[in-house]
Write a protein that binds this DNA or RNA. Structure first.
Lengths: 213, 213
DNA sequence: CGGCTGGCGGTTGTATACATTCCGACCCTG
DNA sequence: CAGGGTCGGAATGTATACAACCGCCAGCCG
């Protein structure tokens, strides 16, 4: 929509995701105005946007707080992500099989290569590449609705990962490679199954780290 | 979030859905201020919210327009809705099977009864009851993420139906009854399959009406 | 000691002013 | 007459100021 409000959304979301604004933080409009050097109108619009995305909650006349994000919400999020991404992978592979996609699967393989390389060279870029990989699959599905729903889930997944420190098992990119192959080969069932297992593995890893019970 | 902006969101969305603001309508902030008797700030926040929901698009400095909504978008929407609702039905039935839900399936059967009755008595309430039925299944799934994603899709589905005049085949509520039975019986696979077929039938009906090709 | 009331901080709603950008009409030229 | 460029109005984006309202908390009174 507007220029400034969008940058405030991006910066504030980044601040929430990277921990500058931890969960339960009370966000005052005046404080954010100081933080970002803008006036209240863009801040208000940004807060409303982030509320729609589920990063903050706002009780009328009682301020805006960063939401808590515990294992329960994480499990819920991963469960939804599983069905969502199985669908993106299945539809992407279907479109490849039907020839609806001219050589657009190249990009996917490039991302896998870059991700594998980044595992050694620049570990801090791995998370972004991971996001790009999944976003690309969603894009290949050709469904704008799917893309927009996925974006919302992905933003929170990113948050989840940012709260952990040195996660992301290295095996992750071999799974990505297998998914890319299945999509490029136009095998919907295989792509969906691999994607489902991949997401499930991520969830298992997360729960393993955060389930002392 | 805020009181006033929320009412503006609700009223404006209702206006879009019921056709008071047809697709491609240019929405000027000043005009909406007059229409609703509020100042520009709540209007701006409402427009931003509706943009996030996908009801309007906004090019910077070029105004806000109600989005077009054709058969392509409808097919896309229904496809996503299918996977989403298969998941809600499956999870709801799973929770029933595992005993996580004390007698909350009563409500579902009540809705089916009310819907069947409304088919004869008050046809204009059928759409709302249909929405309630699907929202209740989503609620029974126990996933807040799923509920929030479903809400977004449901709002647009409602819009779709509002643009048609006398649709909704009467068989719809017998399908609802079957779904309610499957959920209440705790049969995840059956519930998911029935829900998928139900949504597919809706899509087929829609395409039949809007596909002259 | 407990309930109530007052003030205060903060949010929300509104109004106004100004900068920026876009759209469309008009005019000029070939 | 056709095409393109330019200018002006209009709408958006932003900032600031101010009034009204709510929730929290401390202090007071019973």
């Amino acid at each position: 929509m507007s220029k400034l409000a969008d940058t405030v959304v991006a910066r504030l979301r980044a601040g929430i995701v990277d921990g500058s604004y931890p969960p339960d933080t009370r966000l005052t409009e005046a404080g954010l105005c100081r933080d970002f050097g803008v006036s209240r109108v863009p801040v208000r619009e940004a807060l409303r946007h982030l509320e729609a995305e589920g990063f903050v909650v706002s009780r009328p006349y009682a301020g805006v707080r960063v939401v808590r994000f515990g294992p329960d919400e994480a499990a819920d999020l991963f469960a939804v992500r599983t069905t969502l991404e199985e669908t993106t992978a299945r539809r992407a592979a279907t479109r490849v099989r039907d020839g609806d996609l001219p050589g657009r699967t190249e990009h996917l393989r490039d991302l896998v290569a870059m991700g594998s390389a980044a595992l050694r060279d620049s570990p801090d870029e791995v998370a972004a590449l991971n996001t790009s990989f999944h976003a690309t699959v969603a894009d290949l599905s050709g469904s704008t609705v799917l893309v927009s729903l996925f974006r919302q889930v992905a933003a929170k997944i990113e948050w989840l990962y940012a709260m952990d420190v040195g996660v992301r098992g290295p095996h992750s990119w071999s799974e990505h490679a297998a998914i890319a192959d299945a999509v490029a080969a136009g095998d919907p069932d295989l792509a969906a199954r691999l994607m489902g297992e991949h997401v499930q593995a991520s969830l298992d890893g997360y729960l393993l780290r955060h389930a002392p019970s």
